[in-house]
Design a binder for these strands. Sequence first.
DNA 1: TTTTACTGTTACATTTACGTAACCAGTTAC
DNA 2: GTAACTGGTTACGTAAATGTAACAGTAAAA
Lengths: 109, 109
Amino acid sequence: MKNKPDQNACPATATMALIGGRWKTIILYILSDHTRRFGEIAARMPTISRKVLTEQLKELEADGLISRTQYKEIPPRVDYAMTELGNSLTPILNDIADWGKEKVLGQTL
Amino acid sequence: MKNKPDQNACPATATMALIGGRWKTIILYILSDHTRRFGEIAARMPTISRKVLTEQLKELEADGLISRTQYKEIPPRVDYAMTELGNSLTPILNDIADWGKEKVLGQTL
DNA sequence: TTTTACTGTTACATTTACGTAACCAGTTAC
DNA sequence: GTAACTGGTTACGTAAATGTAACAGTAAAA
């Protein structure tokens, strides 16, 4: 893992080191129900630059939350998918989305 | 609310606008089981500067997640507590902490 | 009279995050 | 032979986040 925690760290901090930041939760949420190509992720996140998206994907992969599969095709095709570790976050990601729907966007579930 | 969402925003993004960032989840986690004074929060977060802690607390208050109570005493005493809205996040905060304990820190629950 | 306690604020500097624009590779379609 | 497709990378500049250090204010204690 890229973000190595120290053992007496706050457990909430430990999690947020992996999924915090402006983009990672969104990326994981997008991947939580689908394997997706780079371009598909980018299309669902119109406000992130390709450069930063690449960086975030690399970090998520380094942290073991997603996997990257590159096919030997031209034009290139790259798939991103949740790993087992990433999938263990899915309930939390759904709760986060549900909370946002209900409490922030004011949509009834 | 300070962070006004637009209606067709990603619900995960909507939540992360309120609790994202390096510090807010930690602050909320610290307050989730206790009303605490400014100094108590600071003592539990040794690496945040007082200036930034003040800013984050103000934003959390502006977003309706915590409340601030200032007592007319010298030396000053200020309490921070979860609001009802903040408390509705508690299950998520606990899940985040549990996930960090188990998956990142490697502690068995 | 000086210090301590507590919760800040302010000015300033620095670090980190993010964006923009240009460029690359290799095959296919025009 | 040139453009388009896809998933990037690189150089560069800007914006946001955070830190540091000093200061404020008032009562009680030393």
